[in-house]
Design a binder for these strands. Structure first.
Length: 729
DNA sequence: TACTAATATTTC
DNA sequence: AAATATTAGTAT
C-alpha cells in the first residue's frame, strides 16, 4: 500500500495536513524535494510564527502558490486509514472541528527523554545493628531475596519508605534497577477454562462465532446482575486472541477496578493493557506503541481507548453500555458507546454492548433487529432473582418525620432475627433535602443555582448538590431572626440513619455515602467490612447500587422509589428504572434468596410496575407508549437540532449544523445561544423535540441557565433527547 | 487619552 | 494551542 504522493523522483508537490487544533480544514503545504509523504504520515509543519505536528490527511492538488513547506516527517507510525476515517466520521457526526477530533487520536509524539529506570531493593546483607519492629517487618516482607519496588515493599510491610532507606544505608538491602515490566504480555486464551452454565456457554459461543466471522455486527449482551456477563464476553475475547486479533474492552473509568483486572488475569494469565487517565506518560507511550505494532492483544480502557491506533482490531466490548460516563461533554462531545459502534463498522469487526440495564436507544436497536439480542436470563449457579414488592405509602404511612413503613420495619426485623443483612437505599445525601423556617417559611436556596440547600448535619453545613456551594448552618432564621425555628424537611441518608438507630437499637448499621470524609480508601474498607458481614443494616446512596457483591444481603428496602420519576429530565424514568433494578439486584446474591421492598406513593406507575414484573421489555414498552402519547416521534429519528454558538469560531459549527439540517425530517431551528432555548420556551418555534445530535448535554442545566435571564413563559415545555448514530450508519 | 484586561480571531 | 488583533473597561 505505497501510495506515496511524490511525482517523479523524490518529493515536490503539495499535501493537505490536518493539525490537531480546533481547525476543521486541513491546510495545504508544499513538500520539499527529497521528502516522500503518504496520507497518515505525521509531520512537523509551520503554523503562524511557530511549528506544530500535523497529519498528512490527503494528497494535495499540487496547486496554490507560495505555500509554506513541511518541515520534516516525524519518526512515528502513520495513522492508518481506519483511524483517519474514524476521525472524519466523528467530526462530521459531533459537529466538532476535524482537528479537535484528531487531537483525541494523536497523542503527542514520543519525546526522547530516556526512561528513568525504576529502582527496587533486594535483601542482600546482614541485619542492621539496631533492630526495630518496623525494620523487622520490612526485612520479613523482603524474605526470599526477590527484587521488589521500594514503595511496594513499604506498603507490604506497612512501614514508610524512610525505613527502607535506612536499611539500604545499613547495607541490609541493596538497590538495583527494576526490570521493565511487560506492558502487554500475550494473554493465554486457555489459561483457565471457566465453568459455564448451559446458557452462558450458548451465548459465549454465539459471541465467539461473531469474532470468527470477522464482520460487522452489533450484539447486545443483556444479563441481570450476577449472570456472569464478564465471563461470557471473555469467551469472545479468547476467540480473538486465538485468531491473533486485537480486542478492546471499554468500561466507565470507575469500573476499571482491581477486581476486574484480577478476573481478567485469572482467566487469561496476564493483565490486559490498561488505558485510562491515571496511566501516565511513559507507560501510555509504550502501550500505544505496542498497540500500533499489534502486540498488545487486549486493551481495557476508558472511553478514550476508542481512539488508539489498533493494528488489527477484531472485537470491541462496551461494558455497562448504559453508563452516562461514556459521554464526553467537554471539548469534542461524543458518546463512546456510539462511536464504538462506528469504529467497529469501519474495522468490520463485531461489537458487544454489555449491560444488565441497557439504555433505551440500545434496546430500540435490538428490538428493531439492528442489533443481535443475546440474553443471560439466569443468575450464575442457579441463584434466583430477588422477588420485588411494592409498599403503598398511602396505606402504610410512616408517622410524621419517619420514613420507614411498618412493612419494611417488619421485614428488617425478620432479617435481623435471621442474622441476614438488609440494605436501605435512599438516593439522597445529607440529612434533609430542604430546610425551612417554621415561623416565616424562609427556605434556604443556593445563591448560584436556585436549588435548595441540603442540610448536612455531620458537617454542620448547608450544601448545594448542584454546584458545590457550602455555607454554615445558622442557628436562627436569616429572614425573621427567630432563633431555633429551622426545621428539616424530607429525608437524607443521615436522617434515615437516625431513624434506624432508634428503630433497631441493637443492630449494627453503617451509612455509605460518597461525600463522607476518608475518600475512596475508607469506602473500600467499609464495603469490604459489609461484605464480610460486620454490619446488619446498610444505609446507602447511589454508590451501593453498583459493582459490590454482598453475599449476606437478602433484603433491599427502597425508601423512596418515586424519587427521580417526577423530575423534568428526559432520561429520568430510564435512569430510575436502571438504578432501582441494580440496587434491588443487590439482594440474594449469596446462598439465600433475596427480596426487595419498594416504598411508593404511586404503585400503579408504569416504571414501577414494569420493574416489579421483572421483565425489562415491559419498561421499554411503557416508555414507547408514553412517547407516543406525548406525540413525540419514535426513537432513532433525528427530529430537530439546536446548536449554540458563542463566537465566530462556533459560527462554523452553525454552518455544519445547517448542512445537517437537510437530513432532519422534522422542524429545525438553528439559533444563537441566547435565542435558542428562549425561542422554544416562548413557543415561537414549535419544536416538541429538541435534539442536540451527539451533544446530549444536560438540557435541564442548559435551560435553567437561560431562564435566569428571561421571564419564565407560561405553559410547560416538553424536552426530549434523542441521540443515535445508527440513523446515519 | 493611555493603558490594561478580557475576548475574539487567525493560523496553509 | 498559541500568537496576535480587537474591544471593553479603567485610570489619568
Amino acid at each position: 500500500m505505497d501510495d506515496a504522493l511524490d511525482e517523479g523522483q523524490g518529493g515536490g508537490g503539495t499535501v493537505e495536513v490536518l493539525i490537531p487544533l480546533g481547525l476543521d480544514q486541513a491546510y495545504s503545504y508544499a513538500v520539499p524535494s527529497g521528502l516522500k509523504l503518504a496520507p497518515g504520515d505525521v509531520v512537523q509543519v509551520p503554523l503562524g510564527p511557530r511549528e506544530t505536528v500535523g497529519v498528512v490527511w490527503e494528497a494535495g492538488s499540487g496547486r496554490g502558490g507560495n505555500l509554506k513547506k513541511v518541515v520534516a516527517k516525524l519518526d512515528m507510525p502513520p495513522l492508518d486509514p481506519a483511524l483517519r476515517k474514524l476521525v472524519d466520521w466523528v467530526a462530521w457526526y459531533t459537529l466538532a472541528a476535524k482537528g479537535s477530533v484528531l487531537a483525541l487520536a494523536l497523542k503527542r509524539p514520543p519525546d526522547d527523554t530516556p526512561e528513568r529506570p525504576k529502582l527496587g531493593v533486594r535483601l542482600a546483607g546482614a541485619p542492621p545493628a539496631r533492630m526495630t519492629p518496623a525494620r523487622a517487618r520490612a526485612i520479613a516482607a523482603a524474605e526470599g531475596g526477590l527484587l521488589i519496588g521500594k514503595s511496594a515493599l513499604a506498603e507490604a510491610a506497612s512501614v514508610s519508605t524512610a525505613v527502607i532507606d535506612s536499611l539500604v544505608d545499613a547495607g541490609t538491602f541493596c538497590v538495583e534497577p527494576l526490570p521493565q515490566e511487560a506492558i502487554a504480555a500475550r494473554p493465554d486464551p486457555d489459561h483457565a477454562i471457566p465453568q459455564l452454565s448451559y446458557d452462558q456457554r450458548a451465548v459465549g459461543d454465539a459471541l465467539a462465532d461473531l469474532v470468527r466471522k470477522q464482520s460487522w455486527q452489533v450484539a447486545l449482551l443483556e444479563g441481570v446482575t450476577g449472570s456472569g456477563k464478564t465471563e461470557v464476553y471473555f469467551e469472545a475475547v479468547a476467540e480473538a486472541i486465538r485468531l491473533g486479533r486485537q480486542s478492546v474492552i471499554l468500561m466507565p473509568e470507575i469500573a476499571l477496578t482491581a477486581q476486574f483486572i484480577d478476573r481478567f488475569e485469572a482467566r487469561f494469565g496476564v493483565r490486559p493493557g490498561l488505558w485510562h487517565s491515571a496511566v501516565s506518560g511513559r507507560r501510555r507511550e509504550r502501550l500505544q506503541a505496542a498497540i500500533a505494532r499489534g502486540e498488545a492483544l487486549v486493551v481495557a480502557g476508558a472511553r478514550s481507548a476508542l481512539f488508539l491506533p489498533y493494528r488489527d482490531l477484531g472485537l470491541i466490548i462496551v461494558d455497562e453500555e448504559h453508563e452516562a460516563a461514556y459521554k464526553q461533554e467537554d471539548g469534542v462531545a461524543y458518546h463512546a458507546r456510539d462511536m464504538a459502534v462506528v469504529r467497529s463498522k469501519i474495522e468490520n469487526a463485531p461489537v458487544v454492548l454489555a449491560s444488565a440495564t441497557p439504555s433505551l436507544e440500545t434496546r430500540v436497536n435490538a428490538e428493531r433487529g439492528r442489533y443481535l439480542h443475546l440474553k443471560l436470563p439466569e443468575r450464575y449457579g442457579g441463584r434466583e432473582l430477588p422477588t420485588l414488592g411494592l409498599v403503598d405509602l398511602r396505606k402504610d404511612k410512616p408517622e410524621r418525620g419517619r420514613w420507614l413503613s411498618s412493612q419494611l420495619i417488619k421485614a428488617v426485623e425478620a432479617n435481623l432475627e435471621a442474622k441476614e443483612q438488609s440494605l436501605l437505599f435512599l438516593n439522597r445525601r445529607g440529612y434533609a433535602p430542604l430546610t425551612l423556617c417554621r415561623d416565616c417559611g424562609h427556605r434556604f436556596q443556593c445563591p448560584n443555582c436556585s436549588a435548595w440547600l441540603v442540610d448536612h448535619r455531620f458537617r454542620r453545613a448547608l450544601v448545594c448538590h448542584h454546584c458545590g456551594h457550602v455555607e454554615r448552618r445558622p442557628h436562627e432564621c436569616p429572614a425573621c431572626h427567630q432563633p431555633e425555628s429551622l426545621v428539616a424537611c424530607g429525608p437524607g441518608v443521615e436522617r434515615l440513619a437516625e431513624e434506624v438507630a432508634t428503630q433497631f437499637p441493637q443492630a449494627r448499621s453503617i451509612v455509605l455515602s460518597s461525600d463522607f470524609p476518608g475518600g475512596t480508601e475508607r469506602l473500600k474498607q467499609e464495603l469490604m467490612a459489609v461484605a464480610e458481614g460486620e454490619f446488619d443494616i446498610v444505609i446507602g446512596t447511589q454508590l451501593v447500587a453498583k459493582g459490590h457483591n454482598f453475599p449476606g444481603m437478602t433484603l433491599v428496602g427502597v425508601i423512596d422509589a418515586d424519587l427521580g420519576l417526577t423530575s423534568g429530565d428526559p432520561r429520568a424514568a430510564e435512569r430510575t428504572f436502571q438504578v432501582l433494578r441494580q440496587v434491588t439486584g443487590r439482594a440474594g446474591r449469596g446462598e439465600k434468596p433475596g427480596r426487595a421492598l419498594l416504598q411508593t406513593h404511586d404503585p400503579s406507575h408504569p416504571v414501577l410496575k414494569a420493574l416489579v414484573s421483572g421483565d425489562p421489555e415491559r419498561f421499554y414498552a411503557a416508555e414507547t407508549a408514553a412517547r407516543e402519547a406525548a406525540g413525540l416521534p419514535p426513537f432513532g429519528r433525528l427530529a430537530g437540532l439546536i446548536v449554540s454558538a458563542n463566537s465566530q469560531g462556533e459560527a462554523e459549527t452553525h454552518a455544519r449544523a445547517l448542512a445537517r439540517c437537510a437530513e432532519a425530517p422534522a422542524g429545525v431551528a438553528v439559533l444563537g445561544p441566547a435565542e435558542a432555548p428562549l425561542a422554544i420556551l416562548r413557543g415561537r418555534h414549535r419544536m416538541r423535540l429538541i435534539v442536540r445530535t451527539a451533544r446530549e448535554i444536560n438540557l435541564q442545566d442548559y435551560l435553567r441557565a437561560w431562564l435566569k435571564r428571561a421571564p419564565r413563559p407560561k405553559g410547560s415545555v416538553r424536552v426530549a433527547v434523542d441521540v443515535d448514530p445508527q440513523s446515519f450508519l
